[in-house]
Write a protein that binds this DNA or RNA. Structure first.
Lengths: 110, 110
DNA sequence: ATCATAGTACAGCCCTTGCTGTAGTACAGC
DNA sequence: GCTGTACTACAGCAAGGGCTGTACTATGAT
């Protein structure tokens, strides 16, 4: 079952991950969380984005369930919700994608 | 290096995968291609979408480099471009995401 | 209590992106 | 040659989603 077909129940998970990865800022946040927990203000400064913007994207990631938030004093620590997520992200990043440059869609034959 | 940090060079790959997975139709196409090659007309009927729509999304997936197209007579066969992609998609689908129902973001403590 | 900081929530505008419809290309058969 | 099929490309409109700015809550310090 682990390496079998993707069931309908798991399609919901892919939907969440898909919408989470749809935006560049959220992808960057996910990558950074792959290397350990982080805080909104820290993320905002490191990424050159406004705090409100980062906070909104973090809310999106929470809604999708990819990220967990826990209070620490007056700041909030964010972690990836599942360890498999970090593994999957690294696996995705390792994929070799040779894109045809001319954007001509027929690569094998014309 | 395989299980290390995600380098900037690999961020480009994540961008491609992210935009590819941003849309529900494209996610569905990717899942179907995980189980083997497919043809546009076949996909369109199975998914209840127009051929033009499916073709546009396939063009997007080609542009991102996730999918490879080869002519077969007067139809075109589509395959996933990399075997790791299928593995990564299955891994993503296996993630357990327990989303807090009330959308109240503080789960650990209030 | 007051002030400052960390973070969130939401309205508003704008830009991106998806879907439909149409025109066009490529191949197979007659 | 012509016709039909499989697929693509592109214009046009509509809708979804992102960024900014502001208002608000919560915690900690003085």
């Amino acid at each position: 079952m682990a390496s079998g077909l993707i069931t309908d129940a798991r399609l919901d998970t892919l939907d969440r991950v898909g919408t989470a990865m749809a935006d560049g800022v959220r992808r960057q946040i996910l990558v950074r969380l792959t290397n350990g927990p982080a805080y909104p203000a820290e993320l905002a400064e490191a990424m050159g984005e406004s705090r409100a913007n980062v906070s909104n994207h973090l809310a999106c990631l929470r809604g999708c369930g990819l990220v967990r938030a826990t209070r620490e004093g007056r700041q909030v620590r964010y972690d990836l919700a599942d360890r498999k997520l970090a593994r999957a992200l690294r696996l995705l990043a390792e994929i070799e994608l040779d894109v045809e440059p001319g954007h001509s869609y027929m690569d094998g034959r014309a």
